[in-house]
């Protein structure tokens, strides 16, 4: 694997005495879509949040696009190159959908309003909610809100997209519309790290699956191989449970 976009090196994260991540190492190349799965509390979200330093890790380092996060002196600049989508959308409720998308490009990157709005409208069209631009987040359905949140993250023209359980708070019929947008992104070559329980999505879209348990990566495999023959017993058990829901 040459020139990875993200290189995680012996990463360790503690909350007090609880070890959320322990000695995690992994490289992720450009243009790949990686699904991270595992039981709750296994450290999936924590791992994502270390990659844009929303969590301050104690051990190891993350190298993003050749630059060490530990040594990073300009976090906002780093973060503006990494889009993130959250479980609960986290749109700004007091701003219209359009303003949600244009805020960071205008304020953090200093783009003129008109240019930012043109980009925003294009992105909102792309995620299928171009007609909702003038509404407020509270007036949208969950699926629409999450698509707006994806547009907000894309507006920064990120090199990497992090998805933290993007469909876990959605009704079943809205999950599909969000997954469709994500699939579209992956097919267009976006580098994506996706924490999700949507195994059908993982099987169809992911290049590789990373399985985590108790703060460690216990298995990493090409998608087809992960589903047909997982090696770690813990991963096999997890797959059994999630694929044949009792």
């Amino acid at each position: 694997m040459s020139d990875p976009l993200v290189s995680i090196r012996n990463l360790g994260l503690r909350y007090g005495t609880f070890r959320a991540l322990e000695d995690v190492s992994a490289d992720f190349s450009r243009g790949t879509c990686i699904v991270i799965c595992g039981p709750s509390g296994s450290g999936k979200s924590s791992l994502l949040r270390c990659i844009n330093r929303l969590e301050e890790f104690q051990d190891g380092d993350v190298v993003f696009d050749g630059a060490s996060l530990r040594a990073c002196r300009d976090l906002p600049r780093l973060r503006s190159e990494i889009g993130m989508v959250f479980q609960h959308f986290e749109l700004y409720p007091h701003l219209s959908v359009l303003d949600n998308v244009t805020l960071a490009p205008r304020i953090a990157k200093g783009k003129p309003r008109q240019e930012a709005e043109e980009t925003a409208r294009r992105l909102l069209d792309r995620v299928g909610i171009g007609d909702q631009a003038g509404k407020f987040p509270g007036e949208l359905s969950g699926g629409q809100q999450q698509r707006a949140a994806i547009a907000r993250a894309l507006a920064l023209e990120p090199k990497l997209m992090l998805f933290d359980e993007p469909t876990s708070a959605l009704d079943p019929e809205m999950i599909a519309e969000v997954l469709r947008v994500m699939r579209d992104l992956a097919r267009n070559g976006m580098t994506m790290l996706v924490v999700t329980h949507e195994m059908a999505f993982a099987r169809e879209v992911a290049d590789e699956i990373v399985f985590m348990d108790k703060g460690r990566i216990v298995e990493r495999a090409e998608t087809a191989r992960f589903f047909s023959a997982p090696t770690a017993p813990r991963a096999r058990e997890f797959l059994d449970r999630i694929l044949h829901r009792l």
């Binding site: 190159e81 960071a104 907000r152 993250a153």
Partner: peptide, 22 residues
């Protein structure tokens, strides 16, 4: 909600901008 801070920071807003605009 804490997620509002995380979302605003994740888009590259500085700490003052997070408070000022979000």
């Amino acid at each position: 909600p804490k997620g509002q801070f995380a979302a605003a920071r994740s888009t590259g807003l500085g700490e003052f901008q997070v408070y000022r605009h979000v």
